[in-house]
């Protein structure tokens, strides 16, 4: 049986894995569809935010709450983590050493966790300025949207740790490869969502 080299959207599993392409194809395609559904979810939460952004009800407004410097650092962290995940994917694709794969994954993890740490600080300082979700419709929408992305990133971090665990236990087997490939999609997707948050929430809010 002959197999086309890249049948599935996503990364090649390598020539040695012919028949496995079929299985991966459905898996990766399914994950793309899941992300599409998730994108709708984010889109609607964005829409809620946009409709409620002026509903400050006399409470603090974006100017008083957002700290663009911190958010800019977060953006850089997340973009960098997408780059390092890309390096991990290349390590997987060209079957570099497992150590290199795990190394890049760990760097990504550190960047992701640092991102979350910065974000948490943002929230704490917002809380200190009476920027709590129960204060107004605007703050409710903010604390639905931005932490939803944060929770996704946290979930991605846990997933990443699990994948490293799986690789430690089984080596880079097919399932671990599938895991890394799907997490990569997830991670880049969250990056795109973040760009939207950065523009719609922070830049527009401070403009």
């Amino acid at each position: 049986m002959s197999h086309e080299v890249i049948k599935h959207p996503g990364l090649n599993l390598g020539a040695a894995h012919g028949p496995q392409h079929d299985a991966s194809e459905a898996l990766m395609f399914g994950f793309w569809i899941f992300l599409m559904s998730d994108a709708i979810l984010f889109g609607l939460v964005f829409a809620s935010y946009v409709t409620l952004v002026n509903a400050t009800a006399g409470g603090p407004e974006p100017h008083a709450l957002y700290d663009i410097k911190s958010v800019f650092i977060e953006t850089l962290l997340l973009l960098a983590s997408s780059f390092t995940f890309g390096m991990a994917s290349l390590a997987l694709k060209y079957q570099h050493s497992t150590a290199r794969l795990i190394g890049w994954l760990m760097v990504t993890l550190v960047l992701g966790v640092t991102f979350l740490d910065f974000e948490l600080h943002d929230f704490v300082s917002m809380f200190a300025k009476d920027g709590v979700p129960s204060r107004s419709g605007f703050l409710s929408a903010f604390f639905d949207l931005v932490p939803l992305h944060g929770l996704h990133v946290a979930g991605g971090c846990i997933w990443l740790i699990c994948l490293v665990g799986q690789i430690a236990k089984y080596g880079v087997d097919t399932q671990a490869k599938h895991g890394v490939m799907r997490l990569a999609l997830f991670w880049h997707f969250l990056d795109i969502v973040w760009i939207a948050i950065y523009s719609v929430v922070y830049l527009a809010g401070l403009a």
């Binding site: 409620l52 509903a55 009800a57 129960s134 204060r135 703050l139 409710s140």
Partner: peptide
Amino acid sequence: LGFHFFTNELGGN
């Protein structure tokens, strides 16, 4: 958690 998405007060809609 006392959010105000759909409440009558504090900007809910």
